[in-house]
Design a protein around this nucleic acid. Structure first.
Lengths: 379, 379
DNA sequence: ACAAGTTGTTTCATGAATTGAAATAAGAGG
DNA sequence: CCTCTTATTTCAATTCATGAAACAACTTGT
């Protein structure tokens, strides 16, 4: 379909936004002649469009952008129950959304998902292009080729050939990825931060996950387990260290996860609702303050360790808006900063971001979009 | 000098060891025709040699190896006082070694180093090829282009154009790198472990440093600060947390560095010698045991965090042989393992390795060797 | 000893990707 | 209307890599 040259152009425009042929020639270090030919192909194929004239000295340049109806992508999140299925355009705009109960038995799960994919594909109207692929985000470990779920505790899956089965049910290319990894890849492609070769993402939910983009590529680790931080021993020597489901004590997850925070609130006789807890803390309720302080401090220490080890240009923390304005975030930030050595003039950017309900599914769609735009070996 | 194709062949043989043309064609996914031509060039240029016949079915294959007299490389370690300067061949074999006092004032330092380089270059006899470049390993931060020392606390340097000055003094290409980074790059090239795309190295000395090879490339971080672990807050809530020179308390360095171990030994009224301390611990001396146990446990926790976050295929810990057989190492390993979640059947390899006196200088020479073998943009 | 089979290496004409230089296009500014 | 500047296209040439076939050098079986 596309040659390597075509993919280089598409991925550049996908990452850096619309630009002229001359810009492309500069960025890609290719001759104007090559760009001219490659762009012509992409225009006739209906993937790019000439979308504006930019006037300066000399002949105006024509900015080239992705056509939003070039192709559509399906993203499926198995991160939580209900399962989310979205259809997006190449910019990550959601064109359609479905929710479904999560089914653990693989075959039944795939059949019900395939039925939704079928329906969504048929529903595409004027605005959307043909579906180019399916991305699936799921908790657990995924094989390096993004086809097989090696192990997922949450789903109870071991060595399930997700891409194979879904592929033969739908006839579309399928890409499977760990949920947090899918999330960061979605951020990378659709997040609108331009081209950041090195950044990390931490997701705070009922569990805690992190993922890293290093040198522009997802870092999956030698065994696909990179980014595990939920069981980092943070409160290890504290006398109050809680036992964790992993068998150790004092894991980050036992203090800072939303589940842990709600649990601590219940134990203290408070409502297990984050908004209420934050409000109580803001009013000065000592137990509420203590719980959020402890959780924020623990996460802050873990973030500091991440920053020291990985040194990302930017750290995106996905956190419930209910917590964002609370003492939790304040303490987290402060604790992180005290434990990060800083060379003068050098600063890492910390970004707080509220997870949207579609975040994981959009990330999953991004997997398919990356394959379409970037080609076979983009990660 | 060499084309990209030539570099691909040289780097493959440098990393994976000698191999036949047909092997190269398989590994590099290039046609036999291309390999044939490229190899011919390298043979006539005296960089490769046909070094053995391997008999199997059919025509025997000719293994191609790097000629050890193809080129020599100079490595300079500013890691500690005395400065070490070595001359190596492309296999990392040390052909000559010089020691010099470390001079802080940049210009004087460069002049004295350049004089040694001059002398070493003249001394090369039969065995060695022409000097192809100089690598410099130094504590502190280095610019992304490996030319400028941005900041080095140990040397007191800020924005010193090391490569520029040394280059004009010697007329050779110069590459500067952080000392721990140079060490891991040396391990990668000369370590004899073949081709490991993902591994990490921790150096335990008076300070503690780590470095990571990710996807076959050094991970330097967005600000060149990746791998910092000396100030990871490990013993953070312990009542015995010691103040650290960084201003915080409970940093890894305050417990596990050799300096800290020796300091703790002195405080306990013991000799500040690692071998003696290990021996005492082996005899059951309670203070010695406590000191080594505490240090080993702290490092073990830090290693666990590293493994969880990065998930390397292999973790090389460079540690004094005096400690290697002691309770320190035993506790370190055990503590690390209890805090690493393991998926069944998946194992990370922990390698203990004694630092040689030339380790840093050899790593530095490796910088120049990589440039020679791999071409401009290898990291 | 000889033929057949297997694998490694080289040769050569071909094709694809990319390029530099020149030509052309489309504006701004006088 | 002319000149200057910058963007884009055209075109012939070059570089790079390739597939197929030839050639080489061994092992194995008879």
């Amino acid at each position: 379909m596309f040659s390597a040259g075509h993919h280089r152009i598409l991925s550049t425009i996908g990452r850096l936004g619309p630009m002229s042929r001359t810009d492309l020639s500069r960025v890609l270090a290719l001759s104007k002649a090559s760009i001219s030919m490659l762009v012509r192909d992409l225009l006739t194929q209906g993937v790019l469009r000439e979308q504006a004239l930019v006037f300066g000295q000399g002949r105006p340049s024509v900015t080239l952008g992705l056509r939003s109806d070039a192709a559509s992508f399906i993203g499926i999140s198995l991160h939580a129950d209900p399962v989310t299925i979205v259809l997006t355009d190449p910019y990550g705009e959601v064109l359609a959304r479905h929710l479904q109960p999560r089914i653990s038995e693989p075959e039944a799960c795939f059949r019900s998902l395939a039925a939704v994919v079928e329906a969504v594909t048929r529903e595409i109207g004027e605005g959307g292009g043909p579906v180019a692929g399916i991305g699936i985000a799921q908790p657990g470990f995924v094989s390096r080729d993004r086809r097989v779920c090696l192990a997922s505790a949450a789903l109870g899956w071991v060595d399930v050939d997700v891409a194979g089965r879904m592929g033969s049910l739908t006839g579309l290319p399928v890409f499977v990825e760990n949920d947090t990894n899918a999330l960061i890849l979605g951020e990378q492609l659709f997040g609108g931060f331009g081209d950041r070769p090195d950044f990390s993402l931490v997701f705070l939910g009922d569990g805690i996950g992190s993922a890293h983009i290093i040198g522009g590529r997802l870092h999956r680790g030698a065994h696909g387990g990179a980014g595990e931080m939920a069981h980092s021993p943070i409160a290890i020597d504290s006398h109050a260290a809680l036992p964790c489901r992993c068998g150790n004590k004092g894991c980050l997850e036992t203090v800072a996860s939303l589940r842990a925070i709600r649990g601590a609130a219940r134990q203290a006789g408070l409502e297990d609702d984050l908004a209420l807890l934050s409000a109580r803390a803001a009013d000065g309720h000592p137990d509420a303050l203590a719980i959020l302080h402890r959780a924020g401090a623990a996460l802050g220490v873990a973030l500091a360790q991440l920053v020291q080890m990985i040194d990302p240009a930017q750290l995106v923390v996905m956190i419930e808006p209910d917590l964002e304005q609370s003492v939790f975030t304040r303490v987290m930030r402060q604790e992180m900063e005290t434990h990060v050595l800083r060379r003068s003039g050098v600063q890492m950017e910390l970004v707080l971001r509220a997870p949207e309900p579609d975040s994981f599914a959009k990330g999953a769609a991004g997997l398919a979009a990356k394959h379409y735009l970037f080609g076979e070996d983009w990660a």
